[in-house]
Design a protein around this nucleic acid. Sequence first.
DNA 1: ATGTAGACTAAAGTCGACC
DNA 2: GGGTCGACTTTAGTCTACA
Lengths: 85, 85
Amino acid sequence: MSEIENITIGEVLKRVRKSKKISQEELAHRSSLDRTYISMLERNIKQPTITTIFLLSKALELRPSEFVQQLEDEFEGITIKRTTV
Amino acid sequence: MSEIENITIGEVLKRVRKSKKISQEELAHRSSLDRTYISMLERNIKQPTITTIFLLSKALELRPSEFVQQLEDEFEGITIKRTTV
DNA sequence: ATGTAGACTAAAGTCGACC
DNA sequence: GGGTCGACTTTAGTCTACA
């Protein structure tokens, strides 16, 4: 229900992946996820579960909380619709 | 397939919720999620997507990265495994 | 090396009801 | 207030294939 902004990880994922200089294929392999799915994540077509975040973080050698931290920075100010102020 | 270590948020969620002294119902309302679903999360029957983590964090008035940080502490040392390559 | 598409199956998330 | 069940709709995530 309602209009909730979806958290998209595309930009963060792509940026981190590139900084590690690995391909989507390589990332897919390291995280045991599908290559086409990684592609979808980066294009914000799908959003991951928490388990997937952990898998990706591990594959990218950074802490899940750091990964989420970067998402936070991006969604800062946008604020997910809070019905109860 | 089989041995996937799922990231479960039950303990963390329940602990934080209780520390804020709010009921599952109240949390459900604040996060725009279903009460039975909150119940399932706390019993580790389901795992949330990243958007849900953000919703819950907001409702619990803590940063998503802090929430994840607490998950990390719990899963520290555990290697997420997914047997399918 | 990436995007996209279609078909598929597992699981997320809702909802009403009862204990 | 919280657990659980069943039925349901939507989306996560896989896989094959082609540009």
